[in-house]
Simulated scan of single mutants.
Amino acid sequence: MPSLSLTLAVLGLAVINGGCDRQSQPPAQPAAKEQANAGSPATAAGSPDRSHAGSRLPDFTFADPNGQKLHLPELQGTPALINLWATWCAPCVKEMPLLDDLASRMQGKLRVVTISQDMQGAAKVAPFFKQNGYRKLEPWLDPENELAFHYGGANLPMTLLYDAQGREVWRIAGDFDWSGAEAQNLVGEALVK
């Protein structure tokens, strides 16, 4: 009859080996993510998603810290790049200077519209804009996160390109390098229509 210590040692090895086997299984999260995206094409973060191409500009109105209004359908006539962001979102903050530069380079050809999803609205956004001295970006506010919910509870940043007729061309979830040639080519898709 085996000794008690030998029995415990064998059981201990079985538990350790069993734990290793569990770790070799694929994680449950990707399956859940795939299931959440069922019915829509999968796109990698930072890649353009064209599954909503042709959708019209949504009918929302936003204000800036001074109370000026922006009715999104009124953007028609000029291609528009709409960026949903927040001051607490590190990738969003990283993108803001790049978007400001893009707005400068594309002035008159493309309107870059940044809409903050900060729940504290102007109290957070106005000092952020003042501190960073953006030249071309406008501090539009969406403290109720209406636009993020409209786009499916989007993770931030979320950027959408609309052509001059107010139709969606593509959207990008996650941060993106708006200074590179790839960005120039993607934005150019709305300029040729």
Results as ranks from 00 to 15, higher is better:
130 K>H: 11
159 T>S: 15
122 A>N: 02
88 W>M: 04
93 V>Y: 08
160 L>Q: 11
164 A>M: 02
140 W>Y: 10
160 L>P: 01
120 Q>V: 11
151 Y>F: 13
136 K>A: 14
106 M>Q: 15
118 D>Q: 05
101 D>P: 00
167 R>D: 07
117 Q>I: 00
101 D>S: 14
144 E>T: 13
150 H>G: 01
117 Q>T: 08
85 W>M: 10
126 A>E: 13
143 P>T: 09
120 Q>M: 13
137 L>T: 08
166 G>Q: 06
83 N>Q: 07
96 M>Y: 10
155 N>Q: 14
160 L>H: 00
98 L>P: 00
149 F>M: 06
117 Q>R: 05
107 Q>F: 09
108 G>T: 08
101 D>N: 13
126 A>L: 12
85 W>N: 04
147 L>S: 04
166 G>T: 07
84 L>F: 01
168 E>S: 13
107 Q>K: 15
162 Y>G: 03
157 P>M: 11
148 A>W: 00
100 D>A: 08
113 V>S: 07
163 D>M: 09
125 V>G: 06
132 N>Y: 10
123 A>G: 04
86 A>Q: 04
85 W>E: 10
93 V>N: 08
83 N>K: 11
169 V>M: 07
102 L>G: 03
92 C>P: 06
163 D>P: 09
99 L>W: 03
128 F>Q: 08
165 Q>E: 13
109 K>Y: 02
152 G>C: 03
166 G>W: 05
111 R>M: 02
165 Q>C: 01
144 E>R: 14
104 S>L: 12
170 W>R: 04
168 E>Y: 00
116 S>F: 06
86 A>H: 02
110 L>Q: 02
119 M>Q: 14
90 A>E: 13
100 D>H: 08
147 L>W: 05
94 K>R: 14
98 L>Y: 07
98 L>K: 13
89 C>Y: 06
152 G>K: 02
115 I>D: 03
87 T>F: 07
84 L>W: 03
122 A>K: 06
150 H>R: 01
90 A>V: 15
109 K>G: 01
88 W>V: 02
88 W>F: 11
82 I>L: 14
85 W>K: 07
120 Q>W: 04
89 C>G: 06
136 K>M: 12
134 Y>M: 07
102 L>M: 15
117 Q>K: 00
84 L>V: 02
125 V>W: 05
114 T>I: 03
110 L>W: 10
155 N>S: 15
146 E>Q: 15
115 I>M: 05
87 T>I: 10
150 H>E: 04
134 Y>Q: 02
163 D>R: 09
159 T>I: 12
92 C>K: 10
104 S>T: 14
155 N>R: 12
95 E>M: 10
141 L>D: 10
148 A>M: 12
157 P>N: 09
87 T>H: 08
129 F>G: 09
